[in-house]
Amino acid sequence: MAFYDWVFDGLGLREWCDSDTSAAPLSMADLLAQAGNDEGGEGVPFPSLDALNESCGTVSQTRDLTAGIEDAFLAAKSSLKLVLDPITQPLSWALDGALWLFQAVPWFVMIPLLVLLTWYVARSFAVTVFVALSFLFLGFIDHLDVAMQTLAIIFVCTGLSVILGVPIGIAMSKSDTMQRASIPVLDLLQTLPSFVYLIPLIFLFSVTESKLYGIAIILYAIVPIIRLTDLGIRLVDKDVIEAADAFGMTNRQKLIKVQLPLALPNIMAGVNQTIMMSLAMVVIASLVSAPGLGVLVLRGIRNLELGVGIVAGIGIVLLAVILDRTSKAALSRVDMGRNQN
């Protein structure tokens, strides 16, 4: 009947095959075939699971594979949740707290505070004025609240990424084994389409919890800070390290007094990248109830409200430019302190 019958007949497996024929439920393709639309498959079909299944009922179909992954995940879910839930709970509190704070503080306090913060970090007149004007513009077009929500999420997620990422980066720079083990994971996190992060997370946590999108953002944004911390420490001048050894520094002294300060420009570049990636992810995370400008973009797509989507998009661009310029100004300030030639 099917193309690969002879393989199983030849191997004397017919009996084994027929022992379990009726197990699989009908797929859409089977129904179509039964309805007489089957053209009879010209040529040689690829020996895929589905094609083999036609000849031998015991071989699984491809959809059994995806179903298997799903079942395995669901089986592990409760125990995973038991461990992950309490660990990640503070993330929910932090996000909720930050969201509350950024919205509870009135605009005439918040904007000056943010402008002052910009000045403190960047020490650049141009950047500070630009930030002030951008916030005033966002307020003027009634997007200040949503922008603040986005900003709150970014602050929390970037902060946590740095707190977690820098130690991981340090560990990677200390051990080649650790580096070899981590790089594939980092590659995976960086290349996995951002929507894919959300799928297992939705199964694990309820969509109403803020840690759901918090975890997705951190997983996505933590990669550059880890990579650049590792790189920065590895790039520290060998001669200086040797001098530190020759004067009898302990490993801890070496790390704090020599390696981290000298790696700081690279670490700052990592922070800048991490901020930009959190911003990219926070928009996508609005699919799983992250508040902020992303929600408006989503509304623009869903309801085909062109204007809403575009204005929110411009708001995101504005935030991106603000964050990028501020963190870059801070980075160049660190660099300047080094080489005042």
């Binding site: 001669d239 200086v240 001098a243 020759a246 007094k257 300060p261 000298l262």
Partner: peptide
Amino acid sequence: MSMVFQKFALLPH
């Protein structure tokens, strides 16, 4: 013991 290096190896920061 103390050591002096060819490339100075001072802490730039």
